[in-house]
Design a protein around this nucleic acid. Structure first.
Length: 982
RNA sequence: AGGCACGUAGCUCAGUGGCUAGAGCGCCGCCUUGACACGGCGGAAGUCGGCGGUUCGACCCCGCCCGUGCCUACCA
């Protein structure tokens, strides 16, 4: 019989334990889900689609949070017997990935993607993906993610691509996808269109600058105010409010453009103009401003595009052609000043639209793109939440934000001028193209650029591109075919040219809940696992992603893709700042798990894109924040922390000291196990059922508390209150099991206790540990598995068909073990011990000194129950002797410290041991507190409104409290008297 | 500008229309008590952002204000 303290190390080492279990779980295939279990076996499915991280990135702490929360849900429901599927995958992340590879290409080979050509470039991106994609998978495994890797998906793999084409063609056929000219968000840096959701608004310092447009044939002028003077090169009108008397006479007149005398600007009246802002007159640039665009349509103005694709002034800008927009801004101002048209200006902060991708200011551009008509789809998605009740948004506070977005949704620009992604499955029929060009030309008076190109024998591709941009939209549609098959392959290949643009990444991501299961094929997986139970993700992609999945799921499957949408908070640093590499405060989850030294952390941060001017400040802050680096918390430690810190607010502030605190908990769990196994050897404890009639009060108590904890933890997970679940395990295990049960049961394990008592206590210890590990498992899978495996009698309890804690049942509440009597009694013991400890320390008695004590209680049963644990009380309060008596049978000595509880009094006879003044001070303080409390009760009871209107039991309770308080005061007065009399 | 959160101990956060408002970390003191110093025991510390209102009673419900954060938005 070897003591367990020799087999279990003294301190818990997560690194060693965590490396061991993941392969065993996957080798046993316990994360794999079978459609047949549900389709034939009728097992209820529980499905989560993992939000696919960007294939080229690495996981950060935001990912760590979603991994933790989803894994908790998945593991919990698996233990609850559901047919559980967590489907993992990665996203091709169009712009982000392409940008990374382009940057690498430039840096290492000095080439642009255009130098390489489309095919070769895409090849490079695939290579990059193959090299980097697996890192995410490794990270997920280190985190413990219980995902079904046999079903791992990539948004560009054939199954997903097929779904994308299917969805596109169906929407096209239904008229929900169209190609049209709109004012879109153009990112001049990455040279692609963006959706509204990829644009951020930032407040920036700017200038509201004024200049004058002279009226033609008059000395009069009209002064306009603008933050973008360069756009005046594309102005086609000036608008005023129809009721603005200052300008009433000018409406309908013409203005002269200072640089282009041939262009006449109209003065128009429109009620959208705010007469109180600026000069009350607005310059209108319909091709480069969303408001002006609308205005232009209303008033049939000219749309003059003045920028090229890199936001340099184009040929319409005359002398300013070729200048960057910001350069042109200054030059236009200078020139207007020279012409005497400048009219001053003032500083102003205004919102600038920024590309989320490049950080560059977005240029609104008139452009032909593919769009999804989002409104009808949004209506279906809203119905799923509202009328149909298929989906619930949690926390519900997001509902109003959701509604506002969905009811005001704009058409969704889905074409991107990129090479990495799903190429749009639209094919242009070159035969019909010619007809279209001719029809277009005849509509437009016979001569068009496209016609000239056609007759000049232009290359097919160039001709298509030209026609797409210039031929009337309905005629473009006449030579466009959306097709599931690639029409450029095979016999008819010669005839077709495929659209060059690719789809917005979120288009394929929107199909994720279906495409991953094989849609449009009616697969078993699709039948078994659609819809999913919950979509768990950050609120920052509610619209990017969640809304799109809802729209597509409802539209194509006729049913919302998940029952719950749970939006978790954002992970921030300890100060509440968003973690980001460019701020230098991003912490890699692996560094938390494995630990990292201060120096290594600083070196690593130096490789992040922190702006030069901030670097030294950032590094200094880092050194201050982590003077000792980051201690290794293990995956379990990080997971526990994230769960415990994830309230339902919008932030999770990850503070490393806090993580260390939770890691201490895991050490505590480990050592409680060491204690339980100590001296037990291979000997199996009897099953709990065999001990029912031999339980001590403490046994009954801890088993009762276990039921409460079980309920709390399960409820926490089921209501997405992961902090509740984590705290539930924490408090039960540490504050009840370790602090009291283990302490109370030590005597029962000593060699002088009877064999029977020892066996019963061990049975309870092992039972509680077994249940606790199963309760802890969803949050801390590694440690719970390790300990659960080591508990003696595992096979007897669970049999060989339950080889892992990961597949053992989650504890169920056993009502027969709920024991209120035991709770009352142990609560009394806890109070007595605590008061004794408090008295001795308040009286300044050193910890090592054992002292005698007396507990007085009127009630026979109280005395009896305390008497039954007298030895334990003596040990816990470090007493030399303990007398338990009726108050009437004991006369409190003059020099004594006394504390009264409602049902008992604790007394430390302190003859010669105490400082009388200090004792008197303590009692007086107590007295003051009690008097204040009593005052409160009396004020309430003296209030007729309270006595009459408050519920009778509340009033009664207050009376009882007042009574007890009064007794306590009398006791304290008695003490004071004794002390004073000495 | 509108919307949504949040404001509770030095820090990070729980909390319920009625018990003397709690936890972890930090702080102070004591303790190498036969699992654990990543530990044990005890302690100090909060006018629950401000002002009103509803109520017998408000940290909690309502209104306004102040502050912070986020989202949405066409004021050039």
């Amino acid at each position: 019989m070897s003591p367990a303290s020799e087999t279990l190390p003294k301190a818990y080492d997560p690194t060693e334990v965590e490396a061991r279990w993941y392969p065993r779980w996957t080798d046993a295939g316990i994360f794999r889900a079978e459609a047949a279990d549900t389709l034939e076996g009728g097992r209820e499915p529980y499905v989560i689609m993992m939000p696919p991280p960007n294939v080229t990135g690495t996981l950060h702490n935001g990912h760590a949070l979603f991994v933790t929360l989803q894994d908790i849900l998945i593991r919990y429901h698996r233990m609850k017997g559901k047919n559980t599927l967590w489907l993992p995958g990665v996203d091709h992340a169009g712009i982000a990935t392409q940008a990374v590879v382009e940057r690498e290409l430039k840096r290492h080979e000095g080439q642009s993607r255009h130098d390489l050509g489309r095919e070769a470039f895409v090849e490079r991106v695939w290579e990059w993906k193959e090299r980097n994609g697996s890192r995410i998978v490794e990270q997920l495994k280190v985190m413990g993610a219980a995902a079904d890797w046999t079903r791992e998906r990539f948004t560009l793999d054939p199954t997903c691509s097929r779904a994308v084409n299917e969805a596109f063609v169906r929407l096209w056929d239904e008229g929900l996808i169209f190609r049209g000219e709109r004012l879109i968000n153009w990112d001049p840096a990455t040279r692609t269109a963006l959706s509204n959701e990829e644009v951020e608004h930032e407040e920036r310092e700017g200038e509201l600058w004024r200049f004058a447009y002279p009226l033609t044939g008059s000395d009069e002028e009209i002064v306009v105010a603008t933050t973008r003077p360069e756009t005046m090169l594309g102005d086609t009108a000036v608008a005023v409010h129809p009721e603005d008397e200052r300008y009433a006479a000018m409406v309908g007149k013409k203005l002269r453009h200072p640089f282009f005398p041939e262009r006449e600007l109209a003065v128009i009246a429109d009620s959208e103009v705010d007469p109180t802002f600026g000069t009350g007159a607005v310059k209108i640039t319909p091709a480069h401003d969303p408001n002006d665009f609308e205005m232009g349509k209303r008033h049939d103005l000219g749309f003059l595009n003045i920028f090229d694709l890199e936001a340099r002034v184009n040929e319409n800008g005359g002398p300013f052609q070729g200048q960057d927009r910001y350069v042109a801004r200054e030059n236009v101002k200078t020139e207007l000043e020279r012409l005497g048209l400048a009219r001053g200006g003032e500083a102003m902060t205004h919102a600038v639209s920024i590309s989320e991708r490049s950080g560059e200011a977005v240029e609104p551009m008139l452009s032909r793109q593919y769009f999804v008509r989002a409104a009808p789809l949004a209506a279906e998605a809203c119905a799923a939440l509202d009328e149909l009740g298929q989906t619930e948004l949690i926390p519900a506070s997001w509902k109003s934000t959701w509604d506002h977005f969905m009811k005001n949704i704009h058409d969704w620009c889905i074409s991107r001028q990129l090479w990495w992604g799903h190429r749009i499955p639209v094919f242009y029929d070159t035969k019909k193209l010619e007809e279209a060009i001719h029809s277009d030309a005849s509509r437009k008076g016979g001569d068009t650029a496209a016609l000239r190109a056609l007759e000049g024998g232009a290359q097919r591709g160039d001709l298509v591109r030209l026609a797409l941009d210039t031929v009337d939209e309905d005629l473009v549609r006449s030579f466009s075919v959306a097709s599931r098959e690639n029409l450029c392959e095979g016999a008819s290949g010669e005839r077709y040219v495929q659209e060059e643009d690719v789809l917005d990444t979120w288009f394929s991501a929107g199909l994720w809940p279906m495409s991953t299961l094989g849609w449009p094929e009616e697969t078993d997986d699709l039948r078994a696992f659609y819809p999913g139970a919950v979509l768990e993700t950050g609120f920052d992609i509610l619209f990017f992603w969640v809304a799109r999945m809802m729209m597509f799921g409802c539209h194509f499957m006729g049913r919302a893709p998940f029952g719950h949408i749970f939006l978790h908070a954002m992970v921030r640093d300890a100060h509440g700042h968003k973690m980001s590499k460019s701020l230098g405060n991003a912490i890699d989850p692996l560094d938390v798990i494995h630990g990292i030294s201060k120096d290594a952390l600083i070196e690593k941060t130096k490789t992040y894109p922190v702006p030069e001017k901030n670097l030294s400040r950032v590094l200094k802050a880092l050194a201050k924040e982590y003077p000792d680096g980051i201690p290794a918390s293990g995956a379990d430690g990080l997971r526990f922390s994230l769960a415990a810190l994830s309230g339902q607010g919008r932030d999770v502030k990850l503070s490393i000291p806090r993580v260390a605190g939770y890691r201490a908990f895991l050490n505590k769990v480990w050592n409680a196990t060491r204690f339980a196994l100590m001296g037990m050897g291979e000997e199996e404890p009897p099953p709990l059922d065999a001990c029912l009639d031999r339980f001590s009060m403490a046994d009954r108590w801890i088993l009762s508390r276990l039921q409460a904890a079980t309920e709390r933890v399960a409820a926490g997970i089921e209501t997405y209150r992961f902090d509740e679940a984590a705290n539930g395990v924490y408090q039960f295990f540490w504050n009840e099991f370790c602090d009291w049960y283990i302490e109370l049961s030590k005597d029962a394990l000593m060699p002088d206790a009877s064999q029977e008592t020892r066996q019963t206590t061990r049975s309870v210890l092992i039972h509680v540990l077994d249940a606790s590990m199963r309760m802890l498992h969803p949050i801390c899978p590694f440690q719970s598995e390790e300990i659960w495996q080591r508990l003696p009698g595992r096979d007897t309890r669970w049999g060989s068909e339950v080889p892992f804690c990961a597949v053992a049942p989650f504890p169920e509440v056993d009502a027969s073990l709920v024991d209120l009597e035991a709770e009352t009694q142990i609560d009394r013991v806890v109070r007595a011990v605590s008061r004794l400890r408090n008295l001795r320390q308040e009286s300044g008695l050193p910890q090592r000194q054992r002292i005698p004590a007396v507990i007085l209680a009127e009630d026979d049963a109280v005395r009896e129950s305390l008497g039954s644990v007298a030895d334990e009380v003596k040990r816990l309060a470090r007493l030399s002797e303990l007398q338990i008596d009726k108050p009437s049978a004991y006369s409190v000595p003059t020099q004594a410290a006394v504390h009264a509880e409602p049902d008992l009094q604790v007394v430390l006879p302190l003859e010669g041991l105490i400082d009388l003044d200090a004792e008197r001070g303590r009692v007086e303080k107590d007295l003051a507190r009690a008097r204040k409390e009593l005052e409160g009760y009396e004020r309430k009871l003296g209030n007729p409104g309270y006595v009459n209107k408050a519920p009778a039991e509340v009033v009664e309770e207050t009376r009882a409290r007042a009574g007890r308080c009064q007794e306590k005061i009398e006791g304290l007065l008695g003490s004071l008297e004794r002390l004073g009399a000495s």
